[in-house]
Simulated assay, not measured.
Amino acid sequence: MPPGVRLMQKMSSTRTFARIAPHFIPAMDRTVHRLTRGKVLLSAKMLPGVILTVRGAKSGLARRTPLACMPEEKGSWILIGSNFGRPGHPAWTGNLIAHPDADVNWQGADIPVRARLLAGEERAAAWDAVLKFWPPYATYQSRIEREIRLFRLERRAE
Rank of each mutant, 00 (worst) to 15 (best):
W77M: 07
A157T: 13
G81W: 02
R64H: 14
L131W: 00
P26T: 12
L52I: 06
W77E: 08
I78M: 08
L117K: 01
R143T: 05
R37N: 14
I51R: 02
T139G: 01
C69Y: 06
D128L: 13
I78F: 04
P135Y: 04
P3R: 13
M11Q: 10
L150F: 00
W127L: 02
T93G: 00
A57G: 03
R34N: 10
A21F: 07
F151S: 01
I111V: 15
G75M: 04
W134A: 07
R6L: 12
M1R: 13
W134Q: 00
M8G: 12
W134H: 03
A21G: 10
R149A: 12
V130K: 04
K10E: 11
S13V: 04
D101L: 12
L41M: 09
R63D: 11
L35G: 07
E121S: 15
G75D: 10
W127S: 01
V54P: 01
G49W: 05
P90D: 01
A57P: 02
Q141F: 01
A91G: 12
I111W: 07
L61E: 15
I97M: 13
L41S: 02
W92E: 02
L117H: 10
M1L: 12
F84H: 05
R63H: 13
V113W: 01
A27G: 10
L7R: 14
L117T: 02
